[in-house]
Design a protein around this nucleic acid. Structure first.
Lengths: 297, 297
DNA sequence: AGAATAGTGTCTTTTAGACACTATAGT
DNA sequence: ACTATAGTGTCTAAAAGACACTATTCT
């Protein structure tokens, strides 16, 4: 590039003279909501165990928010992308390295971290529970998989001049052997002629650190809104699975029962049969399926 | 909070002693793809003018990438969120302040800015063309609305052990009176049993600065994938519009013609009639509709 | 045999696609 | 009168919902 700027410099000359600006810079953390679907305990040998949606949380071992539960994560380094940082932290804290990873968004509310200017680049990760092994990180006193519940509790509309504001309070309940957290998040949809805006506010953090209740609410909503489009359920299952297991993943994410026949029709093109069946189930065995790679793009 | 950490400090004591870590920090820019739908010139007084999807680009007046075209944007400040930064920059550069704004994601590839470590938090904004007035910012030699084209040019699949890689080359063409840019972006979908990953790479930047061809490709794909769910089309229209105009917005985003009867059935619940009609159109006048606020959440 | 799930068939309802038809201001 | 769009009706095809029925293995 031989173009010269108003100082008569080429790009090369400009870069040699360039000194990072005096602007203040934020720390950027990659935090992630890693979900898995695991089987609850079942005493009746005949019945299939119920599936549960679970998310990994780590109890903070230092200030700020000492003792509260937080999403695993860490700061992004200059030699990596935010995705690489997320995968690195995930590997360090759970030992998993091949997961489905998706950006949720940047959470940058002023004052969200009392130490300094920190924005969080939040990720959603999905992993097959059979491949997980949990490793508590160095900064974590404890780590645990929490059962996730997310339900609408209250809803209200309000008409304003030229618009409509809709407020919904969702209860986010997280349960594990170590703790039971109940956070309340308010989702506000502001609708005007020209724009639409969705905002989240934490009404009660329920023992979750920073603004992580908000991130988790976004993560669950993201999951629910996208489970149908793409093949989001497969990363949550082992490579061979029954159609009932696949259906249970959908049901656990949507928190809603689906009809078997319709579900099977819908996923028919996404999977392919194997010759194998489940065994010793206490009832009729079930054919195992594989994800059909040809499908989807 | 009276909890004490391993040094015996309370959170207050910890924060008083806290010094920002020595970690290197990135600059974070909020860049945005602001779209509008405007009417092309039409010589036949009877015919409706064709609609065009347009995006605002600014020609860089300084190094690096001097002379190339870039998305408007600027650095995030410590006293604002990334959304506020995007809106502030938008206001400064276009004079618009009430727009639909959505996070697209963080683009953080190492070396994407030759000066220093800069990650871009990319936004998609939608605005009604009748309300726009363009103001060239201080750092911009020129600014212009570019007609956007985004088409698949080449596609290929490749089977790898345990997976499938699908590569698609899209041509992104941007046309204005000032310049005609043709970038090529490769979209790579990597599918394995456990995960799925979508990556973008710039094959040819066509005169677009930094990785902005990639951001624009993501923006157009985001628009196309979401135009149906939510009421994405309304921010692109004035408050009263004809159903044909609404349909044209969908068509211009999807780059595809839709059937009138089916389209009207689909949007019937999203709009409400007014008593007003278009006038002097050279043909039968058309009823004006308004967005129905009651619909959607 | 009985329990519990696997898997299929079919009827109904809803939604989308296709296309033809009528209606009407403006020149 | 003619043009170009506005707007509706209807047939068909595809997808989703509902539900009943048969099949099968393990205890």
């Amino acid at each position: 590039m031989d173009l010269r700027d108003e100082n008569g410099w080429t790009e090369q000359e400009f870069l040699e003279r360039y000194r990072p600006a005096e602007y203040e810079r934020p720390s950027v953390a990659a935090d992630m909501a890693i979900f898995t679907v695991s089987a609850a305990a079942e005493d009746n040998y005949r019945k299939l165990p119920e599936k549960e949606l679970r998310v990994l949380l780590i109890q903070r071992g230092g200030h700020p928010d000492l003792g509260k539960w937080a999403l695993p994560g860490g700061f992004v380094r200059p030699d990596e992308t935010v995705e690489q940082a997320a995968l690195r932290e995930l590997k360090e804290e759970t030992g998993v390295d091949r997961v489905y990873l998706e950006q949720l968004g940047v959470f940058s509310e002023v004052g969200r971290d009392p130490r300094t200017w920190v924005m969080s680049c939040a990720f959603l990760a999905l992993a097959d529970s059979s491949r997980l092994r949990l490793q508590a990180g160095d900064d974590a006193a404890h780590a645990a998989w929490f059962r996730v519940g997310y339900r609408l509790r209250r809803e209200g509309k309000e008409y304003t001049p030229g618009g409509l504001v809709k407020k919904q309070q969702y209860e986010l309940s997280l349960t594990s052997e170590l703790a039971e957290l109940n956070a309340t998040v308010e989702r506000t949809v502001t609708l005007t002629e020209a724009s639409a805006e969705v905002g989240y506010a934490i009404v009660a953090d329920g023992g979750l650190a920073f603004d992580h209740a908000k991130i988790l609410a976004c993560a669950v909503e993201w999951l629910r809104s996208r489970v149908n489009d793409s093949a989001l359920a497969f990363p949550l299952l082992p490579s061979e699975f029954t159609l009932t297991e696949l259906q249970q993943v959908y049901e656990v994410i949507l928190d809603k029962e689906l009809l078997k026949a319709a579900f099977r029709r819908k996923v028919a093109d996404l999977v392919e049969e194997t010759d194998r069946y489940t065994e010793n189930a206490g009832h009729r065995p079930s054919r195992l399926y594989r994800r059909k790679l040809e499908a989807l793009g």
